[in-house]
Amino acid sequence: MSARFKAGDRVRVRVGSPPGHFRTPAYVQDKIGAVERFHGDYRNPESLAYGGDGLPRRPLYLVRFPQSQLWPKYTGPARDQLLMDIFEHWLEPA
């Protein structure tokens, strides 16, 4: 699949808790981050977890979020970041 986003793009994480297995923790859902790097296309764990083949492969990104946006009570410096691998179908432009 061709990657929809590139490094630097602002993205919002979709909200959802589909039945079964998924890899997008609730604490980043609906948060806005920036694409740090595109990792490549990887098998979809939501299918692999149930014996599926994980195909088609899905674009996977490393996305960074300012810690202060994730946690209202974050006490560290504003420059601190949280980085997480997120599959493209969990991201939308922001």
């Binding site: 890899r23 997008t24 923790p25 990792h39 990887y42 098998r43 764990p45 996977l60 490393l62 960074r64 810690q67 560290g76 410096p77 420059r79 601190d80 970041q81 949280l82 980085l83 997480m84 691998d85 997120i86 599959f87």
Partner: peptide, 15 residues
């Protein structure tokens, strides 16, 4: 130090 950027990596996928 506070001028060091802390970057926490939450490895949720294949990396």
């Amino acid at each position: 130090r506070s001028d060091v950027e802390v970057r926490v990596l939450d490895s949720t996928a294949d990396m």
